[in-house]
Design a protein around this nucleic acid. Structure first.
Length: 879
RNA sequence: GCGACCGUAGCUCAGUCUGGUUAGAGUACCACGUUGACAUCGUGGGGGUCACUGGUUCGAACCCAGUCGGUCGCACCA
């Protein structure tokens, strides 16, 4: 970098270059180093078929910031990357491709061939998302990349399944579960999303057996399930129906005898207070059926059509059947009325199909014993959620946990390690079974696979080599923090916690850092169907990864959603460019500078920026440790732009251009360099590429900023008096600029300025008058405060300094008076507030002395200003 | 029904946990400007009863209670 570097930073040429450099040097690789404190993160594995979206970009930027910071701080830092096989999602995708390209279904292909296809797909597209993560700058240890379906993870899955089975925590049962008729599989409760839907409440009357025309009217939202009714239930305390309990009804259209039963579940106030009971097709009815020993009559098939024994409805779609059946009820006089009714209908999370509760044989995890320690780990504070409020959401879910249905009737996934023999023997085994240990007969493996989240739940230790007892596991488990969105606390976070506690006897991570969603500029979720998604790669290509990262981090607070604005991207891009140009300036002025052999004589500005820098180091470090990454980024932005660029560089210019005073010049060079390099190091986790690019050009130690030492906190550099002095000088400069602008002094023209300065600040001003001369474009003269005030001059007052800007012609008395009166008014307002406070006996008696002294100091300051302005107004009035 | 979150400048959001500067930023807006890093810039400016009501306190954007408005979870209302 020299004088011929472009004035605009071009991320494209730098980013790929540095990423391959980092990879080649293995800077992201973690070796187990027992001498160091470990810091580890496992990536939330993205779907292997997926591509990077804004959610990933945010999630991984947050992780990368933490990882890069800790790496620089000298921890043994591991960021474990990998992908998830994403059972249903991947299977759907491959099925779609298959249908489109060959017009085939997976059944046409058969299980083995189909799985082969999926693996083909994985090999072809599986590294797409990892490459995209590299574009983002993610400093994962790619040598350790894992996949939930790889050998090791699969071994972990079997180990866990068998172990839980042997402990009786995994069992097989014939139960009613959520069934997706489109995916043709059972789902767990949380894979069902309930949506309020406008439906109807159909009131249907059932004739009472052996009565003269008596009816009992039930209300239902699903009339098609009438065909499967095996009872009607009323509340035992319901006086309307007490006399009917124990009697029988005749099921309309079918003619079946239905007992009238009493059950507490029934809400007297809802509908008619009488509920038809369909044990095979409703979870509550299923429970009631068990309580009352009612038969289960299946009337809906797995594919959502009506069962073979439903007569004229057989084979009809469930919703077609509903229409037709209501029509028939109406014709035959059973339909009493139809009311509109909004109710929550469950949809398949993956394909949005309405979920059908169906009875089937599935595998379940008994959750209560596993949930208990998982609750305790969070309640005790061993695992902390950031922000804390998510603790409640987590605990609430686990407190009400129900058993987890883990079997899926799909093909892509970890096949359940259970084998069945015709003799009735069920063998659950870590290794494949070929014959029945009991009778020696042939066995067949359970055709189902496990819920994808079953293997994800093991991720923090399966990726470390478990069930083998590895060095990685010892060093990096438990991991330090898990970074993820609030939408998968139940799916993933909770499950990792109980699996970790069960199989490692230890928590999987000590902190859970939760972030929100990235929405579009109108606050809508980004979605394929809306077409409002913004591709992070597009942003990276147009503006660079650093810009995207900075945009996602600033203006975002933990746990809250954020909106994506192109304007904000531009603002981040401008920031990158600002850093670029400030660095250009520094590099262009390093001629003759030797960072090793330098004598230093610090000026006020030097002491000031070093003090500000020291505070920035301390604050940014603290913010990152507290997961306040947006706040850290904001502080760096302000420090670089508003302090380093706007003021320090400006004060340094004269010193750099004056080659006579080489001590002064080299001191400026030293401070410019030192502060810039340190600031770049602080910024590196946020904007890895541009910081590396510049850092390499600055005098530095080491091969890459990636492994540079995190700037040390140097409290000895904090210099409050330098800050106070610099502040008043800056205020004076701003006041002069303000007056010049007010009367349209051309920016290039110097103005004469007379400063009357109190004793307190006199030496500061006389010693540093050059700052005012240069930065306020003024011929400034400093003198003590005297009664004799310049005539024909504009006036401004900062605490302890009266500033006069003499004008060539006469000043506009009216305008000047108005300006000063305005200033006086705001001063009066503020003084009144302070008077009120100080006059308040309670305040003086109870407020801390420090606060009171602060108010008194302000009072003195404002009174001084007020006095000066009043004097000036009197003078103006006489003209 | 239960719970959480949000309401601060035209817009997007910090600040609220830990009460005490004249409440901040980005962006948009107005005026001036190509001064040897940067027009992706500089200088200056305008813009806010911190949703509302009440309480606690010497003192509330911040703590407490409630109201209104918005968002989102959880829940078996057939």
């Amino acid at each position: 970098m020299g004088n011929n570097i472009p004035t605009v930073y071009d991320p494209q040429s730098e980013e790929s270059k540095w990423y391959s450099f980092w990879e080649k040097q293995e800077l992201f690789h973690a070796e187990v180093d027992k001498a160091k404190t470990p810091f580890s993160i496992v990536i939330p594995p993205p779907n292997v078929t997926g591509q990077l979206h804004m959610g990933h970009a945010l999630d991984n930027t947050l992780q990368d910031i933490l990882i890069r910071t800790k790496r620089m701080q000298g921890f043994d830092t591991l960021w474990m990357p990998g992908c998830d096989h994403a059972g249903i999602a991947t299977q759907i995708k491959v099925e779609e491709v298959l249908a489109k390209e060959n017009g085939l279904s997976r059944y046409d292909l058969g299980r083995d061939k189909f799985i082969e296809k999926v693996w083909d797909w994985k090999h072809q597209y599986g590294n797409r998302i990892t490459n995209q993560l590299k574009r983002l700058g993610a400093s994962c240890d790619w040598q350790r990349e894992r996949f939930t379906m790889d050998e090791g993870c699969s071994q972990a899955v079997r180990e866990v399944f068998v172990s839980l089975y042997e402990k009786g925590l995994i069992y097989q049962g014939n139960r009613i579960t959520n069934w997706c008729t489109r995916c043709n599989t059972a789902l767990s409760d949380i894979e069902v999303e309930h949506e309020d839907t406008q439906g109807n409440l159909y009131h249907v009357r059932y004739p009472v057996e052996d009565s003269d025309g008596q009816f009992l009217t039930v209300a239902t939202t699903r009339p098609e399930t009438i065909l499967g009714d095996t009872a009607v239930a009323v509340n035992p305390d319901d006086d309307r129906y007490k006399n009917l309990v124990g009697k029988y009804l005749t099921l309309p259209l079918v003619g079946r005898r239905l007992p009238i039963i009493a059950d507490d579940y029934v809400d007297q106030a809802f509908g008619t207070g009488a509920v038809k009971v369909t044990p095979a097709h409703d979870p509550n009815d299923f429970e009631m059926g068990l309580r009352h020993q009612l038969p289960q009559i299946v009337v809906i098939n797995n594919d959502g059509t009506m069962a073979a024994d439903t007569g004229r409805y057989a084979g009809m779609d469930r919703y077609e059947c509903r229409k037709a059946l209501v029509e028939e009820l109406k014709e035959k006089g059973y339909l009493v009325k139809i009311e509109e009714h909004v109710h929550a209908v469950g949809h398949c999370q993956r394909c949005r199909t309405v979920v059908e509760p169906l009875v089937s044989k599935q595998w379940f995890v008994d959750m209560k014993p596993l949930a208990k320690p998982a609750i305790e780990a969070v309640e005790s504070g061993r695992i902390k959620f950031v922000p804390e409020r998510f603790t409640k959401i987590y605990l609430n879910w686990l407190d009400n946990i129900r058993d987890w249905c883990i079997s899926r009737q799909i093909w892509w996934g970890h096949r359940i390690p259970a084998w069945y023999c015709d003799c009735g023997e069920v063998i659950v085994s870590k290794t494949d079974v070929t014959c029945c240990p009991k009778c020696g007969g042939s066995v067949r493996q359970d055709p189902d696979v496990l819920d994808t989240w079953f293997s994800s739940a093991l991720w923090p230790f399966s990726t470390m080599g478990w069930p083998k007892d590895t060095a990685e596991l010892k060093q990096f488990y438990p991991t330090s923090v898990l970074v993820t969105g609030y939408d998968i606390i139940f799916f993933w976070v909770a499950r990792m916690i109980f699996m970790g506690l069960e199989f490692q006897q230890d928590i999987p991570f000590s902190h859970v850092f939760i972030h929100g969603l990235v929405r579009d500029s109108e606050g809508r979720k980004m979605s394929k169907s809306l077409g409002n998604g913004i591709d992070p790669l597009e942003v990276i290509e147009k503006y660079g990864a650093d810009t995207l990262r900075f945009t996602l981090i600033t203006g975002n607070t933990p746990g809250n959603d954020m909106r994506f604005y192109w304007e904000r991207v531009e603002s981040s891009r401008n920031f990158a460019n600002k850093i670029w140009n400030a660095s250009r300036f520094v590099l262009m002025n390093l001629e003759g500078f030797d960072s090793n052999t330098i004598a230093k004589k610090f000026t006020l500005a030097d002491r000031w920026i070093l003090s500000r820098y020291a505070k920035t180091v301390a604050e940014v470090t603290a913010n990152i440790n507290a997961f306040e990454l947006g706040e850290a980024a904001r502080k760096l932005y302000e420090f670089i732009w508003n302090e380093y660029c706007d003021w320090y560089i400006e004060t340094a210019k004269a010193r750099l251009y004056n080659k006579e005073d080489s001590l002064n010049r080299s001191t400026a060079q030293y401070v410019l360099c030192h502060v810039l390099r340190g600031t770049l190091e602080l910024l590196h986790p946020f904007m890895p590429f541009i910081t590396e690019t510049i850092w390499q050009h600055l005098p530095h130690e080491g091969e890459s900023i990636v492994r540079a030492t995190w700037p040390a906190e140097q409290p000895e550099l904090v210099d409050e008096s330098a800050e106070a002095e610099m502040t008043i000088l800056m205020e004076t400069i701003k006041a002069i600029r303000n007056m010049r602008a007010e009367v349209n002094v051309p920016p290039g023209r110097k103005s004469e300025v007379i400063l009357q300065v109190s004793d307190e600040w006199y030496s500061t001003f006389s010693a540093n008058i050059n700052y005012i001369k240069t930065l306020a474009t003024s011929e400034a003269e400093v003198g003590p405060i005297v009664a004799d005030k310049p005539e024909n001059a504009m006036t401004a007052v900062v605490s302890g300094v009266e500033i006069y800007l003499p004008l060539k012609g006469l000043i506009d008395v009216e305008k000047e008076t108005a300006r000063l009166k305005k200033e006086l008014a705001s001063l009066d307002k503020e003084l009144n507030r302070i008077f009120g406070k100080l006059a308040n006996a309670g305040f003086v008696a109870k407020a801390p002395a420090e606060v009171i002294e602060k108010e008194r100091a302000k009072e003195r300051e404002y009174k001084e200003k007020q006095l000066a302005i009043n004097e000036r107004l009197e003078y103006l009035a006489k003209l």
